[in-house]
Design a protein around this nucleic acid. Sequence first.
DNA 1: TGACTCAAAATTGTTGACAATATGAGATGG
DNA 2: CCATCTCATATTGTCAACAATTTTGAGTCA
Lengths: 241, 241
Amino acid sequence: MGASAELARSRRADRSMPDRVDEAYIVERIYSAVMEHRLPPAQKLSELKLCEAFGVGRMRVRRALLLLSDQGIVELESNRGAFVASPSRTEANEIFDARSVLEPAIAKQVAAEISSANLAMLKQHVLLEDEARESGKGADLIRLSGEFHVKLALASGNSVLRRVVRELVTRSSLIVGLYGTSNRTVCPDHEHSDMLGEIERGDSHAAAAQMFEHLIGIRAGLDLSTTRPEEGDLKDILDLR
Amino acid sequence: MGASAELARSRRADRSMPDRVDEAYIVERIYSAVMEHRLPPAQKLSELKLCEAFGVGRMRVRRALLLLSDQGIVELESNRGAFVASPSRTEANEIFDARSVLEPAIAKQVAAEISSANLAMLKQHVLLEDEARESGKGADLIRLSGEFHVKLALASGNSVLRRVVRELVTRSSLIVGLYGTSNRTVCPDHEHSDMLGEIERGDSHAAAAQMFEHLIGIRAGLDLSTTRPEEGDLKDILDLR
DNA sequence: TGACTCAAAATTGTTGACAATATGAGATGG
DNA sequence: CCATCTCATATTGTCAACAATTTTGAGTCA
């Protein structure tokens, strides 16, 4: 199934297709499709197909692709087209390093002070994760798993941080697809709710530490080694012995 | 000599104008102009004038403006044009909060491990700041003052963090222009070199703490209060007494 | 069967023209 | 003199058309 089919399907199924499809809407949809692993790394995103899928002209599609490219979600190749990004191992390491700076600090801040509305929102979210897990809705669970992180950043009330986290979490989704060493594409069952427990207790340091460990855990499931194989390994690989 | 030849010659006379002016180049130039306070908040950026200045078509200018808008440097107003951004006090607070998360962590990492090349680069930079300060080159000093922070992020070796910091530092430059309560538009004389000293000594915690204090100091020079004036104040302001 | 060549088709890059909207200048009336 | 209205000008939004480039498919040859 090609890119326009993924997007066209979501268009038909989505009754909230707005009257006015601007770049932001297109960007949002593509973010979601990436997050749900419906658009894998290296997937070609043809302008014409996107125009058809969204019912808009090339200008709007090109603007959306430009924004997505700047956000690291899409790679634009001159005269060849747009492709869902395939982050290198180096980029992946940088993304997780950046997340390790940002997300514990966010968890810390949120634990120190959270509105009852945001706490309820996060609790509801964890419930949705549990439901999706129990009812086998894989795509939903994948999306919800990443979204917990974005919602936590939303609860921080800092839109700058939220935006950065959202971009990094979405790119992490691509990284998991490329470098995952197991079938695990979602965060472990209990870790979000444990973290939410710390947040509810107002234990800033525990929340921050737990987030840090959580990210280490996610990263441990990925093969992000950038070390060159030693010469002996090369001989093995190329079967020159 | 025709008008187009005059324009072509004028372009060639620009020392740093590359053969190919793409969006990235336009974005860079506008970042620099904002950083140096040559482009103040609310300044109108007309497409036609940008086309003339850069010698490119509207498409390229519009793409650059779109990127700058997404990065918070420019505000696009439909049918009215592009303006250098005027961050609200709320945004300003968010930006500084985000910087307070990111930059101490960066300073910490850089102090823990810095290449001799990066250390030399930062030392050279502080020297340039000192020279600009002593020789009264205000625009250079403004730019260099902000750039220290960006170069520190560059020294972290993490391009994700560097990019975020650059955006936030540039937006901070606008904030200083809007909300500065003194004539100070640059970081205090010794603070960058003191921080660099901690970094050179490898004292991670001191470097992080110093960066944190440094940012608090910058912020103290700004009026970012979002508290509503009390009713008594309103009467004063409106001269209703 | 694989490699090469070439033409056709597909796709992206760009522009000029026109539509839509906002702004500014001048005229008019109170 | 000021407020309102009208109209011209300026500017941004959008598109179709064409240029430029890449990809694909067909044919030929060894």
